[in-house]
Design a protein around this nucleic acid. Structure first.
Lengths: 227, 227
DNA sequence: ACCTGAACACCGTTCAAGT
DNA sequence: ACCTGAACACCGTTCAAGT
């Protein structure tokens, strides 16, 4: 970033590659993200990507998942601005101390994580089967463990609560993405059978509201000793 | 199935193709399921598959998802036996009346669905972004709507409850699949930071038990009017 | 109706080469 | 160090042809 741009330096960087890959996924779908198309979008030969991700596409996928998981990263409108060194003023590294109550920290994380997943819902299939031991994932886990500990949980209860919270968010997002517009196409074929589905099929539910309500109920249930 | 086997009839059928595809997915992973490999496993030319799935691989994926979703289908040990016409004696079509209480019906569906997803966890990425308006999915939805109606819910509350239940199962399964063995690799890199993670990282949670407990809590919370 | 065989337009990745 | 260009072993899918 300091030196000049020589002939064979297209200004490629891992961040720029990830951002462009996400633009393709969001705009055209995961299946259309190919190394050659990615190269074209970056105005570079496809094989140049391998210099930044030597292990190939799988490593790029890992990086994309971590990028989305890192909900605390500052985001520009085009996600390409590099001017994001001003977030807390108290900590230099980004590990800012958060002195809000435990439930607000969890609420914020859940809503931010859901928003990130919805924003890049085309990348959702990448999240399955990818081990969550990245920096960003561990940061989120630490946040959750600390919050539930502050709420009074101990030991395995903390682990269970964090599992339930993460499962809730991903499950809710997947249901949201899968079910978009289910009500429209179905009413034709299901006259006699599926009476309840036919009857309730027209109902639409406010997804944001439903997510928020379910989150509150879950947090209550997790920290009240009934589970 | 009635006529004899002529020269150019390898005994291919949609069911046999789906079963073999799932065997490849379960054994080698989704990425290694290619039309050519599938043809080899079926001892047939790859292009023969297109006669049963004219729309190609995407249609095959749809069929695989529906196959897994249909948890009420009778299963042989090798899932290749065709002798499955004896399930209820009262209904011929498979739409057997279930006179158990609503909560037991939901419990059974949730545990069966989880088992099916875990059994074919390699196919999980296929479930995202695939509209759930198949026969099997509608049958499951009808089961859930009817049960929650019997539990006393009405209108949008029924829809929300069914959404929450489905989200719970898929979210729990994905977390289970993702998190397998997280505890092992992490303890190395996270000395100072991530104190809670380091401290709780060795704890293992019984996934079956956790799923059952969470399911009971969810059913209670959904049908007690607190959400 | 059901399957084959060759062909086409892609794909991920390797490797030697350029600057 | 960073990128190019050609090459290799694959893909999914189409299409004409066989029986």
């Amino acid at each position: 970033m300091i030196g000049g741009v020589s002939r064979n330096n297209a200004g490629l960087s891992a961040d720029r590659i990830i951002t462009e890959a996400l633009r393709i996924i969001d705009g055209q779908g995961l299946r259309r993200l190919t190394m050659r198309r990615l190269g074209d979008a970056l105005e570079v030969e496809a094989m140049a990507v391998y210099h930044h991700f030597p292990l190939g596409k799988e490593q790029l996928f890992d990086a994309i998942v971590e990028y989305i998981t890192d909900v605390s990263r500052p985001r520009g409108t085009d996600a390409e601005t590099d001017a994001g060194a001003e977030e807390s003023d108290t900590e230099a590294d980004g590990a800012a101390e958060d002195d809000r109550p435990w439930d607000e920290r969890l609420r914020t994380w859940a809503h931010d994580y859901r928003a990130a997943l919805l924003r890049h819902s085309g990348a959702l299939p990448l999240f399955i089967n990818r081990r969550p031991d990245t920096e960003a994932a561990l940061r989120a886990l630490e946040l959750q463990y600390a919050a539930f500990a502050e709420a009074g949980l101990e030991g395995a209860d903390i682990v269970r609560a964090a599992s339930a919270l993460e499962a809730y968010v991903t499950g809710a997002v997947i249901r949201e993405v899968r079910g978009e517009g289910l009500a429209s196409a179905q009413s034709a074929a299901l006259d006699g059978r599926f009476g309840h589905v036919a009857h309730l099929g027209e109902l639409t539910v406010d997804a944001d509201q439903a997510f928020g309500d379910g989150l509150e109920a879950l947090l209550r249930s997790l920290t009240s000793g009934t589970v």
